[in-house]
Write a protein that binds this DNA or RNA. Structure first.
Lengths: 169, 169
DNA sequence: GGAAATTACTTTAAGCTTAAAATAATTCAA
DNA sequence: TTGAATTATTTTAAGCTTAAAGTAATTTCC
């Protein structure tokens, strides 16, 4: 790796010339189209089949992997959404009986959120079907495609994170 | 292509066994993570740098490619968002002076939406910088990576669309 | 020509999402 | 140990988003 043809002014911030990056833009738009397309379909099926929204499903998915519960902050980081967003989401799922909150024993600011037995049962039923939908949506990719795509997306994720670092330090 | 190892019951709908598809699920989550990550960063920069939202930027991007304007329906299809969504988005951009609407000469139901000169100027300034951000975020991928990723995402898009067809016909 | 279907758009209600400000509890440090 | 900084969460205001229902114009087709 790292054999880019022209990384010349990667560091040379002096160069502010128009310098076109159409290809990267097209790549980004295609990535976005794929994820919007699939996300929309999953959202639609979750609603039609189980009358649940994608954010609620995602939240329950996180909690299903954490039998002892998680704090709102942990959830917020994992799900990459704001804290305030989570407050409302959890509220609604507590009201509907899927989740329960209890104040942390060691930190009175924090609360542990977890699935109720009913919530877990309902989630697992949905998750089983959901997994099938995803397999179906990606069905046109063979094993090698999937492996390659996985690797390239991992690389993309690292690339993006690195570029975002620059903002802070 | 099409050399999947075990496509045995692809057609055999009789098989309703648990049959796991963890790999596809992991692939989907990674794709989603990438796009969420990058989208979030772009959203943040657009706000910090230009005080504009991503949906507004996307809408202006569509119109910049259509000098004669587009109808709301066309925009809705292109952007993959609902009609109602667009009504509000356009309203706000007309109020801020970026867009103008005029009733279609041939169809009194429809209206052509287009960028005002000010809107276009502002968009192009933003777009130039935006292109640089994307190049930066994808900077860790070499030419071959980009080409491969592009191809695999195209294949993914086709795969998803085909799977979605099943819903209708 | 005129009823029925379709198409373009808007409105509504509900929920999602964010940034920023506020509250409260904990930790750090002089 | 106490004041300052940090951390966990909630609230607020604004905007985004959708599905569904409604309005109005056009097209279809008998």
């Amino acid at each position: 790796m790292d054999e880019q043809p022209i990384p010349l002014d990667a560091e040379t911030k002096a160069v502010e010339m128009p310098e076109h990056h159409r290809d990267e833009l097209r790549l980004w738009l295609r990535l976005l189209t794929c994820s919007t397309l699939i996300e929309g379909e999953v959202r639609r099926r979750l609603r039609d089949r189980f009358d649940v929204t994608l954010p609620r499903f995602d939240l329950m998915a996180q909690l299903d992997k954490a039998p002892d519960g998680m704090t709102l902050s942990d959830l917020s980081k994992r799900m990459m959404v704001s804290n305030g967003n989570l407050t409302g989401l959890v509220d609604r799922l507590v009201t509907s009986g899927h989740l329960e909150r209890r104040v942390s024993a060691t930190d009175r600011r924090a609360q542990m959120v977890s699935l109720t037995p009913a919530g877990q049962a309902e989630f697992r039923a949905m998750a089983a079907e959901h997994e099938g939908w995803i397999a179906e949506l990606f069905g046109g990719l063979n094993q090698k495609d999937q492996k390659d795509l996985m690797r390239l997306l991992a690389k993309t994720k690292i690339s993006a994170r690195r570029a975002m670092m620059g903002d802070i330090e």
